[in-house]
């Protein structure tokens, strides 16, 4: 494992923990898209089914379990415990527009036409667009709390760091995976606008608000 891959995992973990803590400490999930969180729970569930079929390392297994557990905990906090604070009115992105194309594409373009591989591929495609409901929510309300911006920044950085990891692996091991690579590029591109706002506003101590 190279440093980019490790930092990517770390950044992903930080994002997930920031979100859980934000909801827990403020007793509120306002400004958070429950729909994106449902998509992430689906992503982790379909990708990590290999937990039952093959063991890779203690690190690999524990990270997978932590990601899955945290994502379900987040969904529970939003739709269960702190439901009263959930922004139903603004969180209106139609997730079937992401789920259906990802599923169709996974059936058409995959490495191997087997259930586990198709689900893995589906999770890669779905993850690349799973943040859209959250970005849609931010654009609809026109602002994001600073802590939510930190969450989005850590989550966006994770795939960017993975891209560097894949670049590294290509040159050092000749390894590349086009499905993950192209999806990773799309995923990172979706954050570009946000990255710009984050660097130009949030890092200078201002709240993230969109120009009217």
């Amino acid at each position: 494992m190279n440093v980019f891959r490790f930092l990517g995992d770390l950044s992903h973990l930080v994002a997930i923990v920031i979100l859980l803590l934000k909801i827990w400490k403020t007793r509120s999930c306002s400004g958070i898209s429950g729909r994106s969180q449902i998509l992430f729970a689906i992503v982790f569930t379909t990708r990590y089914l290999d937990l039952f079929s093959n063991f890779i390392s203690v690190y690999n297994t524990s990270m997978k379990i932590v990601y899955i557990t945290c994502s379900y905990a987040t969904v529970y906090l939003i739709y269960g415990k702190f439901k009263a604070t959930y922004d139903f009115n603004h969180d209106t992105f139609r997730i079937e527009f992401l789920l259906v194309p990802s599923a169709i594409l996974a059936f058409l373009v995959n490495h191997d036409f087997s259930p586990l591989e198709i689900l893995w591929t589906f999770s890669i495609y779905l993850e690349s667009v799973a943040i859209l409901p959250q970005l849609f929510l931010v654009s609809k309300t026109g602002e994001a709390e600073t802590i939510t911006s930190h969450y989005l920044f850590a989550l966006g950085s994770y795939r960017l760091l993975y891209l560097l990891n894949w670049l590294w692996r290509y040159f050092s091991q000749g390894f590349y995976d086009l499905i993950a690579l192209l999806s990773g590029i799309l995923q990172t591109v979706l954050y570009c606008d946000f990255f710009y706002l984050y660097i130009s506003k949030v890092l200078k101590g201002k709240k993230l608000s969109l120009p009217a």
């Binding site: 891959r5 890779i56 390392s57 990270m63 993975y162 995976d177 993950a180």
Partner: peptide, 10 residues
Amino acid sequence: KDQEDRHDEL
């Protein structure tokens, strides 16, 4: 091998 490599990533 490639499949194993891919499943090693998170």
